[in-house]
Design a protein around this nucleic acid. Structure first.
Lengths: 142, 142
DNA sequence: ATACATGCAAACACTTTGCAGCACA
DNA sequence: TGTGCTGCAAAGTGTTTGCATGTAT
């Protein structure tokens, strides 16, 4: 049975108080209130909390996993330059799942859509000085 | 300028001769023909080949990057149990991109859809003995 | 000739795990 | 009281990088 601990509560509160945080970002917040906590404990609690449905998660291709409050299924946009994650405006597309429910023996249960683009901040920075842009979080080839 | 080398040719041929291989799988094939090649060289060549458009890639959330022959945009299905990757039957959805072309300042350039499910082999294995299934490639929580 | 590629090993980022002791139910 | 959780450190996986040397152009 899943047992309540101070560490678990702090991890949950931290995750819910942030916007798509990574495990490391959650650790940084929690460690301020509970300096002895270890990264291992943060990872274990994040695993337990997502497995029991108390937290959602966003799987980032080629990047650290991020967490999310539990919400109806929705999509995410990722900035190719800085890695920022944001909820996408597009509502959940039932027909996408229906249209591909099976596929050559594969039984498909759910889907994610990931939009790749440039976030507002990076677009502004690019506008100021096109020459100095460097690709921090390297997205897929265009 | 990108320079032709034996290693590059072997990496490209290996990648094209396999189905969504990972860098490690490509290395294992190439090293048989060219025993001194290093993983670093395989990674560098895969990077160059995708950057120059000679190879495609599939970004796997929570898993190793995989490679693909260059093809028109399409989607992928991933087995939650064994990590197998397969092209999805659903054709590219122009309207998904159109519907979400911008989103709160984000400029969206492309999208991926990832379907999660159980592949044919794992489904059969599960049918034979439900009790012994273990989750090899842990997909997202259901 | 020289810029780019290689092989090697070390470093890197992210995550999991073995273990001994601790604490919640 | 006993199972589950913690802190710690080590290990694991996938990938990148610094450097001296080698090679395609």
């Amino acid at each position: 049975m899943i047992r309540k601990t101070i560490q678990q509560r702090l991890v949950l509160e931290a995750a819910q108080g942030m916007c798509h945080p990574s495990a490391e970002e959650i650790y940084q917040v929690v460690v301020r209130k509970h300096p002895n906590i270890s990264r291992g404990t943060v990872y274990r609690n994040l695993h337990n909390l997502t497995a029991s449905g108390m937290l959602g998660r966003v799987l980032i291709p080629n990047g650290a996993e991020r967490f999310d409050t539990t919400t109806p299924p929705h999509y995410h946009a990722i900035c190719k330059r800085c890695g920022a994650v944001q909820d996408a405006a597009l509502p959940y597309q039932e027909q996408v799942q229906d249209a591909a429910s099976t596929c050559d023996g594969f039984v498909l249960e759910k889907h994610d859509i990931i939009f790749w683009g440039i976030c507002k901040e990076c677009a502004q920075r690019a506008g100021q000085c096109e020459a100095h842009m460097d690709h921090v979080g390297e997205g897929p080839a265009d």
